[in-house]
């Protein structure tokens, strides 16, 4: 099977997961994520892994360049991170953010053509190292973003003093806050390493560390926002609502970096990693 066929199957299985969690939310069932969801996700994830392996062979380089590959790999990373968090802490509500996102990303991958790149620079070992770090960083920061959203939604529920659907489905404020805090730490560390390897790669290719592309700037802005967020959390004990808002803002910069990198910067991306 070609990676395209795999990817269509992956889309179907993630759709099952996304629809199931939506249905559970609408009918306010106690379990957001059931064994059905988990089974669909695991099968989808296995197929997704096969799709990526296949794509790697087809492309002859690590499949992370262009919107098609980037979206697919990012979805894979997010699902993996979700599965790890879910097995460890049963944080089902996180699925409310992850499933639609993974579905959307795989849908995008299915609808976009494979980027026509054949640049020798892609053979570099920097590609898998830099992008793996970056993508796991993105996934962790997405979790922090989702935790922030959950926090704000639950806070609104509690402030309204009349519980509706989400009051019952979303974890406590403290749980969401702690999830965000830990995800930001992990995501920030990965992002830092990704930026360093990115600079080294740039140096190896162009002889300069900084090429001043919008993508580099947005990565730097995001990085600075996360520094501020982490410092605020530890120096002033600043958690809760403001941390959630700042986490969401910082993630916007991360999202911009990703979109710029994979949508607009092609095929320049091949030259400015």
């Amino acid at each position: 099977m070609s990676s395209h066929v795999y990817l269509v199957l992956v889309l179907i299985f993630y759709a099952v997961g996304a629809l199931h969690i939506l249905l559970q939310t609408l009918t306010r069932r106690r379990l957001l994520v059931t064994s059905w969801t988990v089974a669909a996700t695991l099968i989808g994830f296995a197929l997704h892994t096969a799709a990526l392996a296949q794509r790697w062979t087809e492309a002859g380089h690590f499949p992370a360049v262009g919107l098609h590959d980037g979206a697919s790999l990012l979805a894979w990373t997010m699902v993996l991170v979700f599965l790890v968090i879910y097995t460890r802490s049963r944080l089902e509500a996180l699925g409310l953010a992850v499933y639609p996102m993974a579905f959307a990303l795989v849908l995008i991958a299915n609808l976009t053509p494979i980027a026509p790149v054949g640049d020798p620079v892609l053979k570099s070992l920097f590609l898998p190292i830099h992008t793996t770090l970056a993508f796991f960083g993105y996934a962790a920061l997405f979790v922090a973003f989702a935790g922030g959203l959950l926090y704000l939604i639950q806070e609104r529920e509690l402030r309204s003093r009349t519980p509706r659907t989400f009051y019952y489905l979303i974890p406590s404020l403290e749980t969401s806050d702690r999830l965000s805090a830990r995800a930001v730490e992990a995501g920030f560390a990965l992002l830092t390493l990704a930026i360093i390897t990115g600079l080294l790669w740039s140096h190896a290719v162009h002889g300069v560390y900084w090429t001043s592309s919008p993508k580099e700037w947005s990565a730097l802005v995001a990085w600075a926002l996360y520094v501020a967020l982490i410092l605020a959390r530890y120096q002033t004990g600043w958690g809760g609502r403001r941390a959630a808002l700042l986490g969401i803002a910082a993630f916007t910069a991360v999202a911009f970096t990703f979109v710029w990198m994979n949508v607009f910067a092609l095929p320049v991306a091949a030259r400015t990693p």
Partner: peptide
């Protein structure tokens, strides 16, 4: 229950 929704533990 509300205290749990706010503080968790």
């Amino acid at each position: 229950e509300l205290a749990r929704k706010i503080f968790g533990e």
